[in-house]
Amino acid sequence: MGRYVIRRLLQFVPTVLGAMFVLHYLTSVAIQFTGNPVRAIFGDRTPPQSVLENLTRRLGLGDPCLEQPFNPCFSLFGKRLDAIFLHLDFGTDFNERAVTDIVAGALPHTARLTLIAILFELVVGIIVGVLAGLRNGGFWDYLVKVSTVLLIAVPVLVLGLLVRDFVNVKFGNVLRGVDGMPELISRGFFAPTWSSNHPWASLLMPGLVLGALSLATVARLTRASLLENVRADYVRTARAKGLASNRVVGVHTLRNSLIPVVTFLGTDLGALMGGAVVTEGIFSVPGIGRQVFAAIFTGETTVVIGIVTMLVLVYLIASLAVDMLYAVLDPRIRYD
């Protein structure tokens, strides 16, 4: 196990470097074609050439390669690696605010959002999947099958906008008109956008939206895998042991049925992080996604690279953790 973890950690190196280089190259090409993004800081005003050049150099965008289309700017990439890995300096935005500070401010929101989504998709998804599996072919099973297909078919963007406009705005407005309605509900859970007065409550709806798609997949996976396992020989053994059916299903069948769900969770983390960017945009949550969005629009390449690099690291570590969990659930898996 220990050696496996070390090997996986070593594999992170090319993954992270590769991701960084792709980001670096894309942002460099963008600058090579659209011109120095620093000019935008001055808006309509034309700054004196010396001031502009000074600022550009300070922000690390003074390299002449950024004026030559398709130049990969290897020396600039080297400088970035040097700053990030040797000095833990992730750079600044155009206002010279450290990227690490930006992340520190935004990360808690994203972490909460993702946590809500994961809890929602796992708890509700597994319960719904188990019920559907146990009532195979019944009405409830049918309902779950249809509704999960619908959820999977609707993109997060559409679902998010629909929920925001119809549930949080329209229905929320009705609630906000009701006397004696607790603030936590009318301006928290049903807040039209994220509100700093209710940092958790107003994150719930975006979290549900973010988790909905994966919830549908978790429910279907649990259902299919439970159906496959209820006929397994060891389940028959468990019944022959005179165990109550709650225990046969809840302990013997479920534990095996959850193995594919955990595998899915590993790949789902990436999808959730992508979905978080969209969801944060829709509900104006000041999380990481919003920051990346903003940085892309203003051409703050350092911010984009810094944040996305951290996200890649978070993703890699989380999926390693999921793989460990997988080994705990299924003792036949041996990492060595």
């Binding site: 005179g242 013997h252 095996n256």
Partner: peptide, 19 residues
């Protein structure tokens, strides 16, 4: 079951719970 009448299955690998 198990108290008065118990059963042994053919394929112990699949009849025992792997996890």
């Amino acid at each position: 079951r198990a108290n008065q009448i118990a059963m042994i299955f053919q394929d112990a690998l699949s009849a025992l719970n792997p996890v």
